[in-house]
Structures are given as C-alpha cells and as structure tokens.
C-alpha cells in the first residue's frame, strides 16, 4: 500500500461531508480538477510537489469547498430567519429571566437560605436558563432554516408596520386626573382598609397592622398623599414635566416607601398577634424582624418607589428635547 498523497487526503476530507449518493461522482470531479490544475502548473515549469501544495492551498478548507459544490448553506440561521430569531430570543430572555430570578429568590428565602447561598444560586440558575433558552431557540430556528431551504416561513405584510404613536395633546391632563383618582382611592384604603381585613381564625377581631405603628403611619401616609395631590396640581399648572418635577416625584415616592420598608424589615408593621392566628405556622418568624419574607417585601417596596418616577423622567426628557428642537 502506498502512502496517501496530499491530494488523496484532500479528496478524503472533502468527500467525507458530501452525501453518500453523490460521493463517488464528487470525488472524481474534484480529482479531475486538482489533477488538471497541478498539470497546468507543472507545464508552466513548477515542481510537481510544490504545484500540488499550491493547488490545494488555493482550494482552501475542504469542508467549505464541499459545501460550495453541494450548494449547502454555511450558516446556522440564514438572513431569512435571523431577525425573527433575534427578536424572539430577546423577548424570551426579557420575560423569562426576571420571572425565574424572582421565583428562585422567593423560594430560597422561604426555605431559609442564607444571602450568599441565594446570590450564588441565582447566578447559576440564571446562567442555566439563559443557556437553555438560547440553545433550544437556536436549534429550532436552525432546523426551520434547513427545512425551509432558506426561504422565510413568515411573509412580511405592510399591515405589520408599527402604528406611529403620537402622545395625545391632553396627555398631562389624563395623567393628572388618573393620579388624583389613584390618590383618593389610596387614602380610602388607608382609612378604611385595615378595618375590613377579617380575623384569620374567626375568633374575635384582631388588627392586621401593629397598632402602635399604624397609629402614626396612617397619618403620615395621608400627609404624603396630600403632598402628592399638591404635586400633581402644581404639575398641571406648570403645564409639562421638567427635571425638577421628576426629582420631586422621586422624593415623594421615597417618603412613602421608606417608612413602610423600614417597619416591614424591622417587624413592626404587621401585627404579630394577627400572624400567630393564621394557618401559616412560621409566619411570625418569616414576617417578623429580619424575617426573610419581610426583607423581600421591603426591598420590593423600595424597588417600586425607585421605578415610579421613570415615566415622569421619560416625559421630562421628551419635553426638554422638544424645547431644544424648537
């Protein structure tokens, strides 16, 4: 048996990835091409071995060559489906990751895990979920791309064009009115709500909030609501959002959120007596001072307060840009 030449090895490597039915034919064609090309170089005065090396180098990667011969795509997802793949993957990650993180943290807190453990675990879980989502989405799309022969499975129609969104002229008035309604409703809930919470075991009424805290907290919150009311009326008079108003709304949100979060985390917001009479056996421990559920709720309250002024910020920036544009 003679040692295989470089050409033999090239033929073997290239033919490997061609479907079996076409392999012999492909091999012969390629052998002809390589042989003729080498002969041409030798005729022009080159050394046979150098010519062989030259020709094979020019041919390039045998797998790529075989793909070009067989008209096979050299990408996982072609242009027909790439955009759809990207949009779907982003959407999935944006929806699934926060949900998973929230559920995992809550579950770990309830089962009494330490902060370090929760932090590490969340990172691992998020990485796992991301990898799975990306892999399976890509796998499905690669399959669709192969099966459809690179033609888009979804036809684009002009109806899909996004609607041009122009904020209504009276947007600010709408915002003010809806917020005033919200303020009044919140005030009602603070005044009457706690009295409406039924006793957990039906044996005589027990206040839901710790009476000592609630005695001052409810008036404090009502005062913040009045400040909110003034804020919205001032905004209506001013006519449009500005960064000063954004700052004020941040202060007001913090003013409402911080005492709630602090009393929650300190275990002085919810009445322990009320908790003791529920079916939830370790409720006092979970919702008491430094209780894990209490901590999560406190953090959530602060988070909501931090997110609250974003709408105003966006509007203030738009107003600012319009002003500059004018």
């Amino acid at each position: 048996m003679t040692t295989p030449t470089l050409t033999d090895r090239y033929l073997f490597a290239a033919a490997r990835s061609v479907p079996e039915t076409q392999r012999t034919e492909f091999r012969s064609e390629l052998a002809e091409r390589i042989g003729d090309s080498i002969d041409a170089k030798v005729d022009a005065g080159a050394d046979r071995e150098a010519a062989e090396l030259d020709v094979l180098t020019e041919l390039g990667n045998p797998d790529a060559l075989a793909a070009a011969y067989a008209d096979r795509p050299l990408q996982l997802i072609g242009p027909a489906h790439y955009l759809l793949w990207k949009r779907l993957l982003r959407l999935l990650l944006a929806i699934v990751l926060p949900c998973v993180a929230f559920a995992y943290v809550l579950g770990q807190l309830i089962s009494g895990a330490g902060i370090g453990e929760i932090y590490g675990g969340t990172v691992v879980v998020l990485i796992n979920v991301t990898v799975h989502l990306a892999f399976w989405t890509t796998a499905v799309f690669a399959f669709i791309d192969r099966v459809s022969g690179g033609k888009s499975v979804l036809e684009w129609k002009p109806e899909e064009l996004p609607v041009v969104v122009e904020p209504p002229r009276n947007q600010l008035r709408l915002d003010v009115v809806s917020n005033l309604v919200l303020i009044v409703l919140t005030a009602l809930v603070i005044l009457v709500g706690p009295g409406l919470i039924p006793s957990p075991d039906g044996a005589g009424p027990v206040p839901f909030f710790e009476p000592a805290t609630w005695a001052w907290l409810q008036w404090y919150l009502l005062a913040v609501l009045v400040a909110q009311l003034v804020f919205w009326l001032l905004l209506l008079r001013h006519g449009r959002w500005s960064y000063r108003f954004v700052f004020a709304s941040l202060v007001l949100a913090a003013a409402a959120a911080l005492p709630i979060a602090a009393t929650l985390a300190g275990g002085t917001l919810v009445n322990p007596e009320f908790l003791a009479r529920t079916d939830w056996t370790d409720a006092v421990e979970q919702l008491g001072s430094q209780g894990p559920v209490a901590s999560v709720l406190a953090v959530s309250v602060v988070a909501v307060a931090a997110v609250w002024p974003i709408d105003g910020f966006v509007k203030a920036r738009r107003a600012r840009q319009e002003e500059i544009a004018r």
Binding site: E29, R33, S37, E58, L59, A68, Y69, D71
Partner: peptide, 13 residues
Amino acid sequence: ANTLYPLLRRLEK
C-alpha cells in the same frame, strides 16, 4: 475556478 466548478455542477443539477 472556485466559481466555475460549482457553477457547472449547479447547471447540471
């Protein structure tokens, strides 16, 4: 050559 050979194959197909 990298254009011609695959082209011949396609024309034949």
